[in-house]
Write a protein that binds this DNA or RNA. Structure first.
Lengths: 104, 104
DNA sequence: AATATGGTACTACAATGTAGAGGAAACGAG
DNA sequence: CTCGTTTCCTCTACATTGTAGTACCATATT
């Protein structure tokens, strides 16, 4: 694994998926991030999701269309083992640095 | 302030400077990051430092040459108020997301 | 059938991350 | 006093991530 660092957004997206659990699909993830204070466009999110999927950090499955107005099929995402690992790896240096003066 | 997100490396560099305090110069920062488990080339570090300086997140001053073998003048960096703010801003969404399932 | 709604995909460009090679300055040994 | 060694900074070029806008699709309402 030559390159194992993920970016800032990628990290947040992974966390949002974990938080949402089984109900993690695009729009919900977007809302979660906005609520957390990280504003971004919907397009930016899907691009990031695609890249995470390419790298094997998240997996996805298409859901059934719901009976709501505009109920298009949702794409549900979940964090793979490799994704959880990448998340931990991303957080480690920060923890080591912050531990010493408590800025976390 | 249209764009106020900083990247993963930028964040770590800011933290390393804070940790080192007055003794924060290139090589020391590099060593600190390596020790924290974030390996990177020296070139990558200086590029990042320049960009942080351009953005006004860090300031710098040239030191006096020391009396060591090869004791060339060092460039000392410090985190500006805007840098500390950016650091906090970068950490906020992560905290809000992680608070709920404790992955931090 | 037309439009509103909730959702995903594509495209193109900006910002960050990355490393390598290349100076510049100071010291010690000859 | 000049040469190699050490320490440190700068420049260049390219890869990866971040960003938003726009297009697109399917269903429900009217």
């Amino acid at each position: 694994m030559a390159k194992d660092y993920i970016g800032e957004l990628e990290e947040l997206v992974l966390m949002a998926i974990l938080k949402l659990g089984p109900g993690a699909y695009g729009a919900a993830i977007h809302e979660t991030l906005e609520d957390a204070g990280r504003s971004l466009s919907v397009g930016a999110l899907y691009t990031t999701l695609s890249r995470l999927e390419e790298k094997g950090l998240v997996g996805s499955r298409m859901g059934e269309p719901t009976a709501e107005r505009g109920g298009r099929a949702k794409k549900y995402f979940k964090v793979q083992a490799a994704g959880a690992r990448a998340l931990r790896a991303a957080q480690q240096p920060r923890q080591r640095l912050s531990a010493e003066y408590g800025i976390v």
